[in-house]
Design a protein around this nucleic acid. Structure first.
Length: 211
DNA sequence: ATCCCGCATT
DNA sequence: AATGCAGGAT
């Protein structure tokens, strides 16, 4: 059985879920919420951000770390995430807290810098690259891996997954961002750990379907 | 009890 | 590969 191309998967996801959304917030809020959402439900991030108001990088660097921990309490991993947010903010200061300046930097340099920060792994770095820095760096998360596995793709590691998407799509950060959102939506609605195949747009081509 | 858009350490 | 990290929702 031939597997669908990355583009075919995308088109079918759009059929199923409509026009994709985008990560909400200002670029700095996106970077902060990308840390907060690590292994955490999005509703908890919303809760923290609602109470916080608008995160400002200058404030984050001056406020006591204990206070920062308190702001993000609903998201868990408070000590680690507070330290990571501080680290990201210090990194951002290197670009003058200026997203346009940061966006002029080379994509791979930015990725290396982000991965060098404690608490920032590949998924978070790529989410920041796509949604805040507008660089086409495909986000691979647990939903992505589970979906591909169910669909019968046999990638041995994330490098192969990355190549599958990045070589099969226009190198456009907007497409990468929309794609990530669609896979997320799909993973929440149908391709869960316990799959809900009723109404899934891939049901007739998915070898892992449970019908 | 299990899960949530992980990461670092061992 | 396994485990600790944190807190809240279901």
């Amino acid at each position: 059985m031939e597997r669908l191309t990355a583009q075919q998967v995308y088109d079918r996801l759009v059929e199923g879920y409509g026009k994709p959304r985008w990560w909400p917030g200002t670029p700095y809020e996106i970077m902060v919420s990308a840390v907060l959402v690590q292994n955490t439900a999005w509703t908890q991030v919303e809760k923290a951000l609602t109470a916080w108001g608008k995160p400002e990088p200058s404030t984050v660097l001056t406020m006591p770390v204990e206070q920062l921990q308190e702001m993000i309490r609903p998201c868990g991993f408070t000590k680690a995430k507070a330290a990571t947010i501080r680290g990201v903010t210090e990194w951002y200061r290197g670009y003058g807290f200026d997203i346009e300046q940061a966006r002029t930097a080379d994509q791979h340099r930015l990725r290396r810098e982000l991965l060098g920060l404690k608490g920032i792994g590949a998924e978070t770095a790529d989410a920041m690259l796509v949604f805040a820095l507008h660089k086409p760096s495909f986000v691979i998360d647990a939903y992505t891996r589970r979906f591909l596995d169910r669909m019968g793709y046999r990638f041995s590691d994330d490098r192969q997954i990355r190549r599958f998407f990045e070589s099969g799509l226009p190198a456009d950060y907007r497409v990468y961002g929309w794609y990530h959102w669609l896979l997320l939506e799909h993973g929440k609605n149908h391709c869960r750990k316990q799959p809900v195949c009723e109404g899934c747009v891939f049901s007739e081509v998915c070898p892992g379907r449970a019908l």
